[in-house]
Lab assay of single mutants.
Amino acid sequence: SRSVIRSIIKSSKLNIDHKDYLLDLLNDVKGSKDLKEFHKMLTAILA
């Protein structure tokens, strides 16, 4: 869910600018399909 993804971003080791950017992107995501794609992208970034 959106709140879980937000929590993953906030607890990541990324610097604050990257976190803010990803949180802004997350706010722009519409629909469950796009949310799944965003989660895939985030997982790849944090891997």
Rank of each mutant, 00 (worst) to 15 (best):
14 L>S: 02
22 L>R: 00
44 A>H: 07
41 M>C: 09
42 L>I: 13
21 Y>E: 08
15 N>Q: 11
26 L>T: 01
43 T>P: 02
46 L>K: 01
47 A>R: 08
2 R>Q: 06
15 N>T: 14
20 D>W: 13
4 V>C: 11
21 Y>Q: 06
23 L>G: 01
22 L>D: 00
1 S>G: 09
45 I>S: 03
6 R>I: 10
28 D>L: 15
21 Y>F: 11
45 I>G: 01
6 R>T: 08
39 H>L: 14
37 E>G: 07
30 K>T: 09
13 K>F: 09
30 K>M: 08
42 L>N: 00
9 I>K: 01
19 K>F: 04
27 N>V: 07
37 E>W: 13
36 K>M: 10
2 R>T: 09
16 I>H: 13
32 S>L: 13
18 H>T: 14
17 D>Y: 09
16 I>E: 15
22 L>S: 00
13 K>S: 15
8 I>Q: 06
46 L>V: 05
20 D>A: 14
42 L>Y: 02
3 S>M: 12
18 H>Y: 14
18 H>L: 15
14 L>F: 02
31 G>C: 07
2 R>F: 10
31 G>Y: 06
43 T>D: 12
9 I>E: 00
3 S>P: 07
8 I>V: 07
12 S>Y: 01
34 D>Y: 09
14 L>G: 03
25 L>T: 04
40 K>I: 13
10 K>G: 06
13 K>A: 13
42 L>P: 15
35 L>D: 02
10 K>Q: 11
34 D>K: 11
31 G>F: 06
38 F>S: 00
12 S>K: 01
1 S>W: 14
2 R>S: 06
28 D>I: 09
13 K>T: 15
39 H>R: 10
27 N>S: 11
24 D>V: 11
8 I>D: 03
3 S>H: 11
29 V>C: 12
17 D>Q: 10
36 K>F: 13
34 D>A: 15
25 L>N: 02
35 L>N: 01
13 K>E: 09
26 L>Q: 00
16 I>K: 12
35 L>H: 02
4 V>Q: 12
15 N>W: 07
12 S>G: 04
5 I>D: 01
18 H>S: 11
45 I>R: 01
34 D>N: 14
45 I>L: 12
8 I>L: 14
44 A>V: 11
15 N>G: 13
22 L>W: 04
20 D>L: 14
35 L>E: 03
14 L>T: 03
41 M>F: 12
1 S>V: 13
18 H>Q: 12
46 L>S: 02
23 L>W: 03
6 R>N: 04
45 I>W: 06
27 N>L: 07
4 V>W: 03
36 K>Y: 12
11 S>V: 05
22 L>V: 02
3 S>K: 08
39 H>A: 11
44 A>E: 10
38 F>K: 00
30 K>L: 07
36 K>A: 14
12 S>H: 02
41 M>H: 05
2 R>D: 06
47 A>W: 03
26 L>R: 01
41 M>P: 00
32 S>I: 15
1 S>L: 15
31 G>H: 09
3 S>L: 09
33 K>W: 04
13 K>C: 09
30 K>E: 08
43 T>Y: 07
14 L>V: 05
29 V>H: 04
44 A>F: 06
8 I>K: 04
45 I>H: 04
33 K>N: 10
38 F>P: 00
6 R>Q: 13
